Simulated scan of single mutants.
Amino acid sequence: MSIPTYSYAGGGHGKSGKNETNVTGTFRNGQVGAGAYQKTRVQTEVDGNPSSSRTGSLSPTSTNWKPPACWYEPRFSPKELKSFIQRVEKTKFLNVGPMFADMFKSLFQTDKYDNYNMAKQGKGMFWVAVVNEKRKDEPEALSCRKPPFWVDKGETPKDPLAVSPRILAEYAYDQLPVPDTSITMSPDGKQTVNLDTWIWLNRAKFKPVSVTASLPNTNLSATTTATPVALTLEPGTKNAELHPASGECPISNDGSIGTPYSADKKNQTPPCGITYLRSTNNTGPHHLKATLTWKISWTSTNSQRDTLPDGTFGTTTDVTVQEVQAINR
């Protein structure tokens, strides 16, 4: 589902130094909708970014939870809002400046405030709805339907979607760049019927990753950390035995998952692995899926801390199994 929109660019200062305020509004039956959506000013930084350039986004294990699709955050001072509307009025683009100005005045409901609250300059901000770009096509992106509203300095809006450390932490969840779940196997390449396949992860690659989300010019900041905790194997066929039987390889005390094979382990059962029982001569390769589970926690500048639903990210490897009576690793 996409948000039906119009947009206007102008206003505040972007990285280029030019005026760069992007505003999106919604239409309902030909009329301007109740909400004004802008690009968030939340900034993110990654710590512990994996060296691999192949990264993905986590899928929450809880089906009842998603990172936020929209929220409200402080954006305009009275002077900035008044200046923004005046710039729209003066635009000559297709001679529709006055029409856009009237549209924005209606959208922002500026008639509710005497002269854009100029008497309160420096004593608060107008808060606006912003959309998570990664989730702008989800139905939840239309949840923030309030027009820009005034909040006195030092006060927090009584709205569950007002930006907060938790919302920043949940937004950071969406930005976590977890590495591709590429496994190492022994034997490497083709596998052999009834011969154990040892599987493990590169400990240097799979380590905690953190993203800090902060809102400039406020004291709001939260750091969300993803820590790998278990690898789940799905062999891609019923004709296989998993090690352990659950297919879930836990993380060891030293932070490793699975154990690299070595000659002295020849007669041992792998702590993490698979034994294929039939060849793929007549079926084509098995699709071995390896899914890594990440435990998620967060902390904030106001000492709040909590957990968020675990996340998973997996990849699939094609495995060919051959029938050989004797094999040297």
Rank of each mutant, 00 (worst) to 15 (best):
E89S: 10
D114Y: 05
V128N: 10
F126E: 03
L168H: 00
A169L: 12
K90A: 09
A141Q: 03
F104A: 08
V151D: 00
P147C: 02
L94Q: 15
K105Y: 00
D152F: 01
P98S: 03
P157N: 05
K112F: 03
F149L: 11
M103N: 08
L161C: 00
N115C: 06
V128C: 10
M103F: 10
P139S: 06
V130W: 00
D159F: 02
D159K: 08
F93S: 15
Y116E: 14
L94F: 04
A141F: 05
K134C: 01
K120M: 09
F149K: 13
R145T: 15
M118A: 07
K146C: 03
E133W: 03
S106F: 10
P139F: 00
P157H: 03
V131A: 13
A129D: 07
A169G: 15
Y116F: 11
L107P: 06
R166Y: 07
G97D: 05
K105D: 01
A129E: 07
D111M: 06
T110F: 06
E133Y: 04
V151I: 11
T156E: 12
P165F: 01
N95R: 15
K123H: 10
I167T: 06
K92I: 06
A169E: 04
E133L: 14
L94W: 04
K92Y: 00
D152V: 01
P165G: 05
E89H: 12
D114Q: 14
T156G: 05
K105P: 03
R135W: 06
K146N: 11
L161P: 02
M125D: 09
E140C: 05
K158A: 15
